[in-house]
Each structure stands twice: as C-alpha cells, then as structure tokens.
C-alpha cells in the first residue's frame, strides 16, 4: 500500500447491540488485505473494547483506522465526560460502569488494560467535560 487506507466510523452511543460493528468491519478488511490472524485479532479486540467504552461512558463517538503495511493505527474520539484518573482507569478490575451495563457482561474493568495488552502503543488524551481521544498502534511484523 502506497498510502495508509483510511476507514471512518460513527459509533452509535444508544445501541449496545450494534456496538462492535466497526471492529467487525475492520477485521473483515484486514482479512481481505491479507493480514495475519494475530494482527486481525489484536486490532479488532482492542478496537471493540474502545468502541464499548465510548458507548458505555461517552454516548458514542468517532473511530478512525489507518491501515498500512507496517502498522495499524486506531484513533477513537468522543465528547464524553473525560477520564478523571487515567492511572486508576488503567488498573485491571477498576470500573465505573453502571449496573445495567454489568448485566450485559461488560464492566469487568478490563477494557483499557486489554487495549494496552493487545496493542504496541497506546496514548490517552482526556479532558474533564470535553472528551477523550485514544490512539492505539499495532505494528505489523515483517
């Protein structure tokens, strides 16, 4: 690929059942482009966790994915409440998800830790009352 392929998605904040559509679409595209199952799995799980976070905490947002031969970059931005304490939010098991969200199986407090686990690089830019942008990179081994 000469230039990175750019995919853009609006993540609907109202609908849990459609949450994950963007991740599934990205996974399909990566498969079509011939990426390894390992890369597909890492990218799609990290992105799914991010999507779910935007639905749970921020009424949805935007997802941009840039695919090149050497890396896949995922940028998730929302205009939610922001993350008060990023270090705390990064701790496995810490969650502020509501009870009805937990009843769906989410809210394990593993979203951000999983995003970190499955990517090579992760940056969180958050401002209280303004929103959060998460950038994740998965490098493709030659």
């Amino acid at each position: 690929m000469a230039e990175p392929l750019h995919l853009h998605f609006a993540v609907d904040g109202q609908d849990f059942s459609s949450a994950g559509q963007a991740s599934v679409t990205v996974k399909k595209r990566l498969r079509q482009l011939g990426f390894s199952p390992e890369v597909m799995r890492r990218v799609s799980i990290a992105m799914y966790e991010g999507e779910i976070n935007m639905v749970i905490h921020a009424h949805g947002g935007e997802a941009d994915v840039y695919i090149s031969d050497t890396e896949i970059v995922i940028v998730l931005s929302d205009r939610g409440p922001g993350i008060k304490d990023v270090a705390l939010a990064m701790q496995a098991g810490y969650s502020t998800a509501r009870e009805e969200i937990r009843a769906l199986g989410f809210g394990a407090g593993m979203g951000l830790p999983n995003m970190k686990k499955y990517t090579d690089e992760m940056q969180i830019d958050t401002k209280i009352g303004v929103g959060t942008t998460v950038l994740m990179k998965v490098r493709v081994k030659p």
């Binding site: 059942s17 994950g20 799914y48």
Partner: peptide, 26 residues
C-alpha cells in the same frame, strides 16, 4: 465478563458462559 473473556479466550477454543446476549456473538 466479556473483557476478561477477550483477555483470556484463545483462537479455536471453546467458550463456556451463561451470558446469552448479542455481545457474546461479537
């Protein structure tokens, strides 16, 4: 707990759960 599952479930494994909603499929 779905995020725990995504952290541990490996490709081609069987997944045993009591969750039955659409997110399980995802």
């Amino acid at each position: 707990l779905l995020s725990r599952v995504m952290s541990r479930l490996e490709k081609d494994q069987l997944w045993i759960t009591i969750m039955n909603n659409v997110n399980v499929v995802a």
